[in-house]
Design a protein around this nucleic acid. Structure first.
Length: 236
DNA sequence: GCGACAG
DNA sequence: ATCTTGTCGC
């Protein structure tokens, strides 16, 4: 019972860093592996989309991750997986991946099917070194990924229009690295960016299709509920 | 030096 | 992220 199934599908790199200096060096090294010239899975197609999220109990040094598979067309949950581990990295803005990725990879590896797209909490290339959580998870798994964040990070933006689907660019100089996207009329936008192997246009289309009723994508909502439950179960 | 800062 | 009750509204 104490032996978890080996994660041969999405192994954690052996040179996983433990200091901030090592972590930023890893980001600068891996950022070149992000693929930005693939369109990614077509929005509206009968895809299997994964949502991943993590919950923490710093007091007990516990972290719980969840990976959930949804039918992109019906938004019904197809499969759920969780993993519990120790908090291995402090929260440092810009280094979130080193806190979340190890346990997320474990949860993803426990799924019996591979998703066509992974939706992450946080940013992809809209990041100080263009290598946020979603891009990191994409490069390590090879899967198409996008980031849907709840709050602004390093890039400012104009307020998007009031209607569902309205968006405003997150600009890094001349580059549009993400979008503030209104998923519900009159509700605070979410912040979408490309992770790996998906265009920004499609990332936003997927986000809208996954959020027909609430501000956040159903993938994120499902994963959030599951990792919180897993954490409570692990903590007591 | 000071503030800002995904989860 | 997390600490946290009730309350307004569909």
């Amino acid at each position: 019972m104490s032996d978890a199934p080996a994660n041969t599908l999405y192994p954690l790199p052996e040179d996983w860093p433990s200091t901030e200096a090592e972590a930023t060096a890893v980001q600068n090294e891996l950022r070149g592996q992000v693929v930005l010239d693939e369109p990614g899975p077509p929005p509206g197609a009968p895809l299997v989309v994964a949502g991943v999220d993590v919950a923490y109990d710093d007091e007990r040094d516990l972290v719980a991750a969840a990976a959930v598979l949804l039918d992109a067309r019906t938004l019904q949950v197809l499969e759920e997986a969780t993993a519990v581990g120790r908090v291995s990295f402090p929260y440092v803005p810009g280094l979130l991946a080193f806190r979340e990725v190890p346990t997320v990879l474990e949860a993803l590896g426990r799924l019996t099917a591979e998703p066509d797209l992974v939706v992450c909490d946080g940013y992809g290339i809209a990041h100080p070194r263009r290598f946020g959580l979603a891009s990191h998870l994409g490069v390590l798994t090879g899967l198409p990924t996008i980031g849907v964040a709840k709050n602004p990070f390093v890039f400012r933006h104009e307020p998007p229009g009031p209607r569902r689907g309205d968006a405003a660019p997150l600009l890094d100089g001349m580059d549009e690295v993400g979008r503030a996207l209104r998923t519900q009329a009159g509700v605070k936008p979410v912040f979408v960016s490309v992770g790996h192997r998906v265009t920004l246009d499609r990332a936003c289309e997927h986000t809208l299709l996954l959020a027909p009723r609430y501000r956040l994508p159903e993938t994120t909502r499902a994963a959030d509920g599951l990792c919180r439950a897993a954490l409570r179960r692990a903590a007591g």
